[in-house]
């Protein structure tokens, strides 16, 4: 077993587990988007960032879903550095996918009260869960990434239905973003308003729908 320290607590984990899994085992909440149990880890969305302390005042941010546990590792899951980076990342995600309920709820949980970046709706966060599902679970590989940079998309080749597709619908089912749209009429500062958490309230009174995704954690700020 490997011994490491997460948020000041010494824990033991089997070799090959990730920091995310070890932390979740302890009941620590780390938000995720591109991670899905059973699929390979990809490290795209960066909302599961944690701080890895390297000593001599140095540390780095790492995606916990792709970080294997190591002997003597020291991990902080909710340091100021982590929180700041996660918030900016979620803001960036919202700026490209404002109609996603998952993202709106996540923003609300983090106490984000404004998206400060230009909103360019694209309706996909390119987390690649569908791509990995299709390839790894369905052994099909009909969809994939094309283009690069901001032109990157998840598509089929030349826009045709691929030969490999068996119409399983798994790609839609596993999507963390388009699964359910945010029902708000309009966005204020990039946020839907339904879950808006302008004053860091402990529990949100106006909120109805998102309690489902928030679950038992209520409005704990990540």
């Amino acid at each position: 077993m490997i011994e490491l320290t997460i948020d000041g607590t010494k824990v033991r984990a089997a070799p090959g587990t990730t920091v995310l899994e070890a932390a979740r085992e302890m009941g620590i909440v780390i938000p995720t988007l591109c991670y899905y149990p059973g699929l390979s880890s990809y490290g795209e969305c960066r909302v599961c960032l944690v701080e890895m302390v390297k000593g001599r005042g140095r540390s780095s941010l790492e995606a916990s879903c792709a970080l294997p546990v190591e002997q003597g590792q020291v991990i902080l899951t909710s340091s100021a550095k982590v929180k700041k980076a996660r918030r900016v990342v979620v803001e960036l995600l919202l700026a490209s996918c404002p109609s996603s309920k998952t993202l709106q709820c996540m923003a609300s949980n983090m106490g984000i009260n404004q998206v400060r970046f230009k909103i360019k709706p694209r309706e996909c966060i390119l987390c690649g869960r569908c791509v990995r599902y299709c390839k790894e679970q369905m052994r099909s590989g009909g969809i994939g990434f094309t283009g690069r940079g901001t032109a990157r998309r998840v598509t089929t080749a030349f826009g045709h239905t691929p030969e490999e597709c068996r119409n399983c619908g798994g790609c839609q089912w596993i999507c963390p973003v388009c699964e359910r749209a945010c029902t708000a009429d309009s966005l204020v500062n990039g946020l839907c308003g339904g879950c808006q958490n302008l004053a860091h309230v402990e529990t949100c009174e106006i909120c109805t729908g998102c309690s489902e995704s928030v679950g038992a954690h209520g409005h704990t700020v990540y």
Binding site: C45, R46, V89, L93, A95, F145, R148, G149, T150, R152
Partner: peptide
């Protein structure tokens, strides 16, 4: 860099794009 980013991770893909906008 926005053009050359592979587009895999969010901070680089979306972050650089917004940085360029600003």
């Amino acid at each position: 860099l926005t053009e050359e980013s592979c587009g895999k991770c969010v901070p680089c893909r979306e972050g650089l794009d917004r940085m360029l906008d600003m």
